[in-house]
Write a protein that binds this DNA or RNA. Structure first.
Lengths: 338, 338
DNA sequence: AACCATTTAGGAAACGGTTGCAAAATTATT
DNA sequence: AATAATTTTGCAACCGTTTCCTAAATGGTT
């Protein structure tokens, strides 16, 4: 039923090689035969079979994309960039959802079977060992938003989370808060760990320290909301909260308002990621922005580079992040801070 | 470098067929050879090559998934269900992002090249002609949340949008609103068109009519917010608003509050989809729920059924939807309505 | 017109599996 | 123990491409 190369070759009166070449970028065919082939191909309605091609070329143009948090709208922004970026380069995303069973072996197998050219790990909560499992299996892996440990051999594209935390700490103090606390994502997430570390440093540099640390169960509204409720029920003493993600900040903000707490006067709130939601009128949470677009683009480019030259070593590309001031921070006091 | 079937066969001292059979569900191999093969395979670290297998079997186990609105968090809920549902059945989603250039031909080509077994069109805004383009190309297509036109030959799994609209109309009246208006998604979306139709009918049945209709540019917070701002600036006369989606309702709600309008007393608000966000404390928008989980599961099952029996005709599976009462509708007046 | 340098074309062997078929091995039946 | 029925095995062809290699065609020089 399906039209193949041979059908086109027969109809055009040329060899199969000739047909193959017309559909291969940069192959040598005369203008005359190309015309003939193209004509026959459109008449027959031929579409090249990339599965067969992949078998012959040992390249699938498939990129495995691994995700594990579908509760965070930020993922959607990443998806949008990732999918459009990949397909603009003639690559196709093959999705793996890790929610539920987080077994590296299983997902490695899934993707190896399809011989994906590379894997993009789109998660800040997975340990570096996860990415290494892919490398070990011979799959080039790029850990998007991962931690750039110095001893490992896997590519990372993201930000310096410690720096992000430091900026957060510095900013809260500058905006006149005295007892800043930390509400991270899950304690096991490297992003949370690193942001906390930087946060502590940022506060110490200014002679302060973190009031307390608390971890939400995951990066979601609900987790942020519940965590804040707990903090308030426990009557914890704090006047500012650095949250591990905008969605957590959003949950915390809602809980705070429900308890009649005035943001930003009684409580300063800082999120992370500068998601679209944080910009919404009526929400307007101040946040630490990472250049998501640059990061995703860079990751895709890096993937291509590695494919072109597999001997290339691992590389970390870390971008700077910056404070975005919105409604959940009180204005910097006229004292000569800064 | 990569281990192949032949390597395993050689090591195990059996034929290539024997190895193939051990890795094929339900093929005939003796326990003895299976053991030998498995042993050799694990020692060598063999992983079957699904690309090669696909070429031989004419089945890729790939399902094309097409999306076009990454601004709506509802999509994330769908993704979660879709990806986990597919991989539970040993199918893999191959993503196509339609945002930007919405060219059917192009995406048909992309997916035909990879010989996906079927296509799931996850969008309520695309015309039915889009789905038909896939069918014409020989790709079984399931239009998730699509319109079930009676004359077409493509599968649809979703809800009866007219019925959803009718429930909305009925509910607004029952809750005591007098001048209900309609704020849909883009006017070109079949879901919006059908919901409007049902809405009008629902109102008429109770002796009312729609105050006016307005269409947001797309299914997004921003579009809902902007639309509401326009309506308010124009001093439109309405006391209830049926929105085409929760995210639009959310934008509208925010705009209304900014203008000091009291919801639900001065303005009733009704969303659609019962998204997680609509349940958030502090948001709590009343909404029309569709059984998303059932719908997605059903779509996947239908895909499998069609694959098993390609001669099967098109089929529409429409689910009922229902009102979820939350904070944006005033309580039903003690008058004897209902 | 004869020669050489370049392009272009075709044949055939991969790529890594599956599967129909016939032969071999096993098990069941008498 | 011989035979029949059944299961297991291996061979070889095939799935739809690419690509190396050699041969043919083309074009440019003298």
């Amino acid at each position: 039923m399906a039209i193949t190369l041979s059908d086109v070759a027969a109809k055009a009166g040329v060899s199969r090689s000739a047909v193959s070449r017309t559909f291969t970028e940069g192959a040598s065919v005369s203008e005359k035969t190309r015309k003939k082939v193209l004509k026959a191909a459109t008449e027959l309605g031929y579409t090249p079979n990339y599965i067969a091609r992949s078998l012959a070329t040992q390249r699938t143009q498939l990129i495995g994309v691994i995700c594990n948090n579908f509760k965070n709208p930020y993922l959607l922004e990443i998806f949008e960039l990732l999918t459009s970026g990949l397909q603009a380069r003639d690559l196709r995303p093959l999705l793996v959802n890790l929610t539920g069973g987080t077994d590296p072996e299983e997902s490695v197998d899934q993707l190896t079977r399809y011989r994906v050219d590379a894997v993009i790990l789109a998660s800040s909560t997975l340990p570096t060992s996860f990415a290494q499992a892919f490398e070990k299996a011979g799959l080039p892996c790029i850990h998007l938003f991962g931690r750039a440990a110095d001893n490992n051999n896997v590519c990372v594209v993201g930000i310096n989370n410690e720096m992000g935390g430091e900026i957060a700490g510095k900013s809260l103090i500058e905006h006149g808060y005295q007892k800043p606390a930390f509400l991270g994502g899950p304690a096991s997430a490297t992003s949370t760990q690193d942001r906390l570390k930087g946060f502590e440093r940022g506060l110490q540099n200014r002679g302060h320290s973190v009031a307390f640390t608390h971890f939400a169960d995951n990066y979601s509204f609900e987790a942020g909301y519940d965590a804040m409720k707990t903090l308030l029920a426990d009557r914890r003493d704090f006047d500012a909260l650095f949250c591990g993600d905008d969605i957590i900040a959003m949950g915390a903000l809602t809980a705070a308002r429900e308890n009649g707490i005035c943001v930003p006067d009684e409580l300063g709130l800082l999120g992370f990621n500068d998601t679209e939601m944080s910009r919404w009128p009526g929400v307007s949470v101040s946040t630490i922005a990472q250049p998501t677009e640059d990061i995703v683009r860079s990751a895709i480019e890096l993937a291509q580079t590695i494919l072109a030259d597999p001997s290339r070593g691992a590389e970390a590309r870390l971008y700077a992040c910056k404070l975005i001031e919105r409604g959940t921070l009180k204005p910097i006091s006229d004292a000569k801070s800064r």
